[in-house]
């Protein structure tokens, strides 16, 4: 009965070797992931993608609290990494792996010093949404509101001439 929801696809090409691109994407994710996109109550101090199968993907707040985003399903440097997105419509981590969307990142070597990175986030239909997201919005609380507020701030900053 679940209606499939189309995946999100994105890609970018960098003038960096494939080995280095993989390393920067994964080990330095805390340096490039836009800080406003997070779900914890505290400001983000770091974002971590643990470099092994079964590893955690999480944010660490400035107050030291950790907030899980997902798990590493497959760790294949420098070609591919597959991890889950376990944040549903209520903007909370859902520990049930059956409720996980997946993010696949592929690294294609276009040349010795050029790499194309392709990202696909899929299986959104597995995420649980329902009334929780509605409640969070209705009552003015929850990560959804904070996240959107951060997002709105970003957009406002970018759209100014």
């Amino acid at each position: 009965m679940t209606t499939p929801i189309p995946p999100i696809e994105g890609k970018t090409t960098v003038d960096v070797s494939r080995d280095r691109a993989f390393e920067l994407f994964t080990a330095s994710i805390g340096s490039w992931w836009p800080r406003q996109y997070h779900i914890g109550a505290a400001e983000v101090a770091d974002i971590v993608l643990e470099p092994h199968e079964g590893g955690r993907w999480f944010e660490r707040g400035v107050d030291g609290t950790e907030c899980d985003w997902g798990r590493v399903l497959s760790w294949e440097p420098p070609e591919r990494v597959l991890f889950t997105w376990q944040i549903g419509g209520d903007w909370q981590f859902d520990p049930d792996p059956a409720h996980a969307a997946e993010i696949e990142v592929r690294f294609h070597a276009d040349g010795p010093e050029q790499t194309t990175i392709e990202v696909e986030q899929r299986h959104f239909e597995r995420l649980v949404a329902g009334e929780d997201v509605y409640g969070a919005i209705e009552h003015g609380g929850g990560g959804w509101v904070a996240l959107l507020a951060a997002y709105a701030q970003l957009v406002a900053g970018q759209s100014r001439p």
């Binding site: 994105g10 992931w33 836009p34 990202v119 986030q121 009334e131 996240l147 959107l148």
Partner: peptide, 18 residues
């Protein structure tokens, strides 16, 4: 209230920016 479509649409922008 089914939320996931909205979440997906929002994440589309997140990935583009990221």
């Amino acid at each position: 209230p089914q939320g996931v479509s909205a979440l997906r649409a929002w994440l589309d922008g997140v990935w583009e920016h990221a």
